[in-house]
Amino acid sequence: MPQMAPMSWLFLFSMFSSALILFSIINYFFTIYQPITSTQEENSLPQVSLNWKW
Rank of each mutant, 00 (worst) to 15 (best):
S8T: 10
S18I: 00
T31A: 13
N43E: 14
F13C: 11
F23C: 07
F13N: 09
F23N: 08
Y33H: 14
P46M: 10
N27C: 14
F29S: 03
S49G: 01
L22R: 00
Q3I: 12
F30K: 01
F29Y: 05
T37C: 15
L20H: 01
F30L: 12
M4R: 10
L45R: 12
Y33Q: 15
W54H: 06
M1Q: 05
S44W: 09
L50Y: 13
F11M: 05
M15G: 02
L50Q: 07
Q47C: 03
I36W: 06
L12G: 02
A19T: 04
M7R: 11
S44G: 12
F16M: 15
V48K: 13
P6M: 01
L20R: 05
I26F: 14
F16G: 04
Q47S: 11
K53V: 14
P2K: 03
Y33M: 05
S18G: 00
L22P: 00
N43L: 12
I25S: 02
W52T: 10
W54L: 12
Q34P: 06
Q34D: 15
N27K: 12
Q40R: 13
T39M: 09
K53S: 13
S44C: 15
L50G: 01
F23E: 06
W52V: 05
V48R: 15
S44D: 14
M7N: 12
L12W: 06
N43Y: 15
V48C: 11
L22K: 00
I21Q: 03
L10M: 05
S18N: 00
A19R: 10
L50S: 05
T31V: 09
F30P: 01
I32D: 07
A5W: 02
S17V: 06
F11G: 11
F29L: 11
S38R: 14
S38Q: 13
I26M: 12
L22F: 01
F30C: 06
N51R: 04
W9C: 04
E41Y: 08
Q47V: 11
P6I: 01
N51D: 03
Q34T: 15
L50V: 08
I21R: 01
S8M: 04
F23Y: 04
N43M: 14
T39P: 02
K53W: 07
P35G: 14
F11A: 05
S38N: 10
S18E: 00
M15L: 12
I21A: 04
E42P: 02
F16W: 14
S38A: 08
S49E: 06
F30A: 08
A19S: 10
N51G: 00
T39Q: 05
P2T: 10
Y28G: 01
M7H: 09
Y33E: 07
Y33L: 14
I21S: 06
I26E: 06
P6Y: 01
Y28F: 08
K53C: 09
S24Q: 14
Q47L: 15
Y33T: 15
L10A: 13
T39R: 11
N43S: 11
Q40S: 13
Y28A: 03
F23L: 13
S17F: 11
W52A: 02
Y28H: 13
M7Q: 12
Q47E: 11
W52C: 06
Q3T: 10
L10V: 10
F23S: 12
I25N: 00
